[in-house]
Design a protein around this nucleic acid. Structure first.
Length: 792
DNA sequence: ACTGCCGGTTTTTTT
DNA sequence: AACCGGCAGT
């Protein structure tokens, strides 16, 4: 194959020559014996079992550097796969640092998905169903597009969308793709899923994707595998190219990824998989812990290297985490050790409710930040993280931190590229780049309003279907045929003409793509739509659009940008000022922080009820691994907490401490006294609920196992019978609160802090807070600033 | 064709 | 509590 002639394969200086001149590899200095073995065992299959904080990334990157320095491979001949873009970026940086200046990029260091796209683009025409095939310019659909498409297909079968939810079907299809099950080889049982429609709709979906020249996320892997299986010559080309394969987070690979790797590695078997079975937390999206447990059978003669020296956490933290994870069955097993100072035990504390928990953690953070914790010293906010099980838990912290003015950042929160205005703008760009992108067309044909309704759209669709042309072309045809009515006709004519012009511009090198993007948004009327919108969040959306256009500057053209967004979908957070990090436990994998808070350890939330219901013991063990991941993120201090009451779906609900709390080894845990014990309040309420005086509770708490005791659980159960905590009830001064506000008033909200009223509808206010615009019931905000009717 | 109201649903985790 | 989709009124 001519694959090897591609320019990206030639990156870099001939490193082998440098290696000759180099002194005994300085980059190997400081590696421990296990790491060194992992780096120097280059040929044949290697399984690197790397516990949390054992220098896995260092070993991996040094191994790559070593391969290059010894001249075993050129940068383009090393395939290094990660799961996240962040991990890939990190590895690139570290390799560059190891080798110094001139390392040309590693073209094949990336996520499974981004590498798969690169491969598929070169063989797109080989992917098809006999009639249709992909073109190299195929687009990648995100979840949103996927759902919309499935909805259409469900409608086309005249099925009730309530009984056959598109989301659920999307989940099924994802699951199949994770296991490399095409419509053709879908097992009978699966075929009948989704009330009998599963197989049929799956087939229809795949066909539809082909006609759209599109793929979804799952396809990226699955198509690669089927491509390799059906075309040995193609596979052979890639096998020859990738002389060494490295895989990060191997415990998270699913069946499709496993097959993908196997096919590529089976010829030379130079594959090094790095992972930790105790950190497998993605079973729900198809990851198979079995892949790592089975490695030695899959690759006979594999060398296993264990990295067990931990460089991250104190012995206390490690011991607590190890004690917890020991409850899991079927582990490969390893013993983490460290020669660090003992450090502080893991702290454990219970709170009355989630708001008290957030309040307490806020105070703790302020104390650390102010240097009032001698044991840890003054702590930068950047060194503190709050790791939650489910994203809805973040709200309590955001609310609290907002009102006390504690800077925080949410990692992996609502994403920039998932916002409506950004997706609309992207649809314009997509359509300009590929006029046949019907999904993009549907999204924006009537945005801004062009008077195109359901009937108009149907006319266009039937025209397009009849002539086997795209919707954009169908629009022109429908116009010619006079199928569209007055206003819609005029507008759509202009839309189609403009789009034609923009498309021509995307092909014209002389047209600057950033200016073109701006022009598209302006001429289409999209910008004007938001300018005319007087809803209070319109200005923010316009800002986002500006940011989007600015982001374009870093790319060569619109095509390149669209590609990036489809796969990368993450934004470089501004480093800026000190901020506490709030994120899910899943998002925290691979990260580390000196001080870590682990709130919400309540049965049902963590471990999640759903995980246990749906996957039984397996689910519970995965939750336990998640807990293990959480604790092992901490370098110096971990604090676990739970709350007796928490709001769920707007309802207060009580819960018991997590069973994981019981599993922590008591000798490495310090139980803190719940706050408020001396000042009355809910602390006292808890004590009374427990049936004893405050001091008795205090004493029992000091015994370190109070939260294990049946007494504590009884207390929790009984306390929860009470009504929602009164202390959080809004203070309503008037009978008719809404009447008091006018637009422009300054108000304060218990959760969002200060803000300005931007709109009023009945008793609901739209208020601009530092956090953004929120619709809030008037009863929950208080007027501030020169107001005379506040009685204190 | 568009707007505004009502009722059901949501919250596990994501490339 | 907040969001979304479906429905009815203009």
């Amino acid at each position: 194959m001519e694959l090897l002639d591609d320019s990206d394969d030639m990156g870099g200086v001939p490193l082998s020559q440098r290696a000759m001149a180099a002194r005994p590899a300085p980059y190997l200095d400081g590696l421990n014996p296990a790491q060194r073995a992992a780096v120097e065992t280059l040929d044949g299959p290697v399984l690197m079992l790397a516990g949390a904080g054992t220098g896995k990334t260092r070993a991996l990157t040094t191994r790559i550097a070593h391969l290059l320095m010894l001249g075993k491979a050129r940068p383009g001949q090393i395939l290094a796969v990660t799961f996240t873009n962040k991990a890939a970026r990190e590895m690139k940086n570290r390799i560059a640092r190891l080798l110094g200046e001139t390392v040309e990029g590693m073209p094949w260091l990336g996520t499974f998905h981004s590498i798969s796209v690169k491969i598929l683009r070169r063989h797109a025409e080989l992917i098809g169903n006999g009639e249709l095939h992909l073109k190299p310019s195929f687009t990648i659909l995100d979840t949103d597009d996927q759902i919309r498409l499935l909805k259409q297909l469900i409608q086309a079968e005249n099925l009730d969308e309530k009984r056959w939810p598109a989301r659920q079907l999307a989940g099924l299809i994802d699951g199949w793709k994770n296991r490399c099950l095409t419509p053709a080889n879908l097992p009978k049982g699966e075929m009948a899923s989704f009330d009998g429609w599963g197989g049929k709709l799956y087939k229809a979906y795949q066909d539809r994707l082909l006609t759209l020249n599109a793929v979804d996320f799952g396809d990226l892997l699955m198509h690669c595998v089927t491509l390799f299986q059906a075309h040995p010559d193609v596979l052979g080309g890639w096998q020859d190219r990738f002389r060494y394969i490295l895989v990060d987070e191997y415990q998270d690979t699913n069946v499709a990824q496993y097959m993908w790797l196997r096919l590529l590695a089976q010829a030379h078997r130079n594959i090094c998989c790095v992972g930790d079975d105790d950190q497998s937390i993605y079973g729900w999206r198809g990851a198979e812990v079995g892949n790592i447990l089975r490695f030695e059978q899959d690759f006979p003669g594999a060398q296993v290297v264990r990295l067990e020296q931990n460089y991250r956490s104190t012995p206390q933290i490690l011991a607590a985490a190890s004690g917890l994870i020991a409850a899991n069955q079927g582990r490969l097993g390893k013993t983490l050790w460290t020669d660090a100072e003992a450090g502080e035990p893991v702290r454990l504390i219970g709170h009355w409710d989630s708001e008290a928990e957030a309040r307490w953690i806020g105070e703790e953070i302020e104390a650390f930040h102010g240097g009032h914790r001698a044991s840890v010293g003054r702590t930068s906010l950047n060194d503190i993280a709050i790791l939650v099980r489910a994203s809805h838990q973040m709200r309590a912290f955001e609310d609290r931190f907002m009102s006390i003015g504690l800077p925080y950042r949410v990692i992996g929160g609502p994403r920039f590229y998932e916002r409506q205005e950004i997706r609309d703008a992207m649809a314009y760009f997509r359509l300009a780049v590929s006029p046949a992108d019907d999904l993009a067309f549907e999204r924006i044909a009537n945005t801004p309003k062009r008077g195109l309704g359901e009937k108009g759209l149907q006319a266009i669709q039937s025209m397009a279907r009849a002539r086997k042309i795209s919707l954009l072309e169908g629009t022109v045809a429908a116009l010619t045929a006079g199928d569209l009515s007055g206003k819609a006709a005029a507008n759509m004519r202009q839309f189609a003409e403009s789009m034609g012009r923009w498309h021509a511009d995307t092909l014209d090198d002389r047209v600057n793509h950033v200016e073109l993007a701006e022009r598209i948004l302006d001429e289409s009327g999209y910008t004007a739509m938001w300018q005319a919108d007087k809803s209070p969040d319109a200005p923010g959306r316009l800002d986002n659009l500006k940011e989007l256009v600015k982001a374009l500057e870093e790319f060569e053209n619109l095509q390149g940008f669209l590609e990036h967004v489809a796969l990368v979908m993450d934004r470089d957070d501004g480093d800026a000022a000190e901020q506490v990090s709030i994120m899910t436990l899943h998002a925290a994998k691979g990260l580390e922080f000196p001080v870590v808070f682990l709130p919400g350890w309540e049965d049902g939330l963590f471990p999640s009820q759903r995980a246990m219901d749906e996957n039984g013991t397996k689910g519970l063990e995965e939750e336990r691994r998640l807990a293990y991941v959480g604790i092992t993120r901490a370098e110096r201090l971990a604090t676990i907490s739970f709350a007796g009451n928490r709001r769920l779906y707007g309802q207060w609900q009580s819960s018991m401490p997590s069973r994981f709390v019981d599993e922590l080894p008591p000798e490495h845990v310090e139980v803190l006294t719940p706050p408020g014990l001396y000042g009355g309040g809910y602390g006292a309420a808890m004590a009374f609920a427990a049936g004893g005086p405050v001091s008795a509770l205090h004493e029992r708490a000091a015994k370190a196992d109070v939260y294990n005791s049946p007494g504590w659980k009884r207390m929790q159960a009984r306390a929860s019978e009470r009504k929602a905590p009164v202390h959080r009830a809004p203070i309503i001064i008037d009978a008719e609160p809404a009447a008091k506000f006018t637009v422009g008033d300054r108000v304060t909200h218990a959760k969002f802090g200060e803000g300005t009223v931007m709109g009023i509808a009945e008793d609901t206010l739209t208020v601009q807070f530092a956090a953004g615009f929120k619709n809030i019931k008037a009863a929950y905000v208080q007027p501030i600033g020169g107001d005379d009717d506040v009685p204190f």
